[in-house]
Design a protein around this nucleic acid. Structure first.
Lengths: 213, 213
DNA sequence: TTGAATTAAACAAACGTTTAATTAACTTTT
DNA sequence: AAAAGTTAATTAAACGTTTGTTTAATTCAA
């Protein structure tokens, strides 16, 4: 019963933080939206900031699995690994747009230093892993000599750009303004196809291979 | 005297909003940091929200020039136009990191609807123009059949990704943690080279042309 | 002397948090 | 199995701050 309620509060909190930001969301808002007493939030989480940290830690665990699995699979070529990582990111980001929004906000705002560092450390490991895969491909001469860090930035940045604003995404996708683009399976299809094609064009030495679709 | 002071307040406001967010910055903070009386902010701008709008409108004017100029230049090829637009975005974003951060925050937070719409409308026109250039290149068969909207998202998204967090950018660039990466000319060089190369690889039909560096 | 610029002080409202009292849910004792 | 005891969950109310904004008085410049 108590665990359910805690989780319920956290889910409402993600939605509100995503919409209004951390500072913009009051505990009274949150309590009202979650239909619990104001005091319950401090009772469960100690403080508003602690609720945020708890929330981050709980959700962030699900973020590392894919890359770990891909990295240690010897049967995959470097390009296949990159492609699977692209799939992984698209799936993860699109399936939790509210949480993703909260993370992005925390990256942009630098005055809550501890939270900021927490979020950044989530990204560092992933960056290093992906960069390592690209560099291996370059050494093997299956990839051109690219800028691995910035190519990673392009992959993530493309998805992030689409996730920046529901409104802007609808304009990009030619949807009507009220729609939720992240529920639309076409977005995932287009995103996946575009990013993979772009990365492949940029990485592969023999363009002939590209035709083997 | 009064114009100088107004501008001074706006400059301090951009810096504070960028660091702490709009809700996270109090008028007292701002007044103290700008070394003016608390009442002066409402005296000049009417309200905190109005200060924000004024700030947006004042800074956003500088954002449209480049694309307008490029778009109507008949001497440029489509690829040259794209390349110049890439230069334009990189220069603009890197030269005003604080303001850029404020814009991004406003895109992520959706509860101040009017401001949100204001920021979005800045991007729409640019998106449409760039998409039109790409589509023209595709019709002329100098470009492959790409996804113009998402390619634009990749260009902007790559720069945005690097601008997300000073801290994360330093990790990407192998700088020490305290440095200001946006002052480092190497970032601009790397970004420009990477994005242009990637876009070119993705767009151009004849890969032989790429070697003509 | 008139109007704008500037100030310190005060305003109500909203903020995160805490308190003290009450209810609910188990444990232990009889 | 009922009663007593114990801990946890929940509540309304209040706490002291801080918030954005306004007022009324004062200084400054033309």
């Amino acid at each position: 019963m108590s665990v359910d309620k805690k989780e319920h509060i956290m889910n409402v909190a993600v939605a509100l933080f995503a919409e209004k930001g951390f500072e913009g969301t009051s505990i009274r808002d949150l309590a009202h939206e979650a239909d619990v007493n104001i005091a319950m939030i401090n009772y469960y989480f100690g403080s508003k900031e602690n609720l945020f940290v708890t929330l981050l830690e709980a959700k962030a665990r699900f973020m590392r699995e894919k890359i770990d699995a891909v990295q240690n699979d010897p049967s995959l070529s470097e390009l296949e690994k990159i492609n699977q990582i692209i799939d992984g990111y698209i799936n993860r980001f699109l399936s939790q747009p509210a949480f993703h929004r909260v993370l992005q906000q925390e990256l942009l705002v630098t005055n809550r230093e501890m939270l900021h560092q927490n979020v950044i450390s989530l990204f560092i490991k992933n960056t290093q892993d992906v960069v390592a895969i690209i560099e291996k491909g370059v050494r093997k001469k299956v990839f051109k000599k690219v800028d691995p860090q910035l190519l990673f930035a392009s992959i993530i940045g493309t998805i992030n750009q689409v996730m920046l604003s529901r409104n802007m995404c609808n304009i990009l996708m030619n949807n009507d303004a009220q729609a939720d683009p992240y529920q639309n399976p076409e977005l995932k299809t287009r995103l996946t196809k575009h990013i993979k094609q772009m990365v492949q064009d940029h990485l592969l030495i023999q363009p002939a291979l590209q035709k083997k679709k």
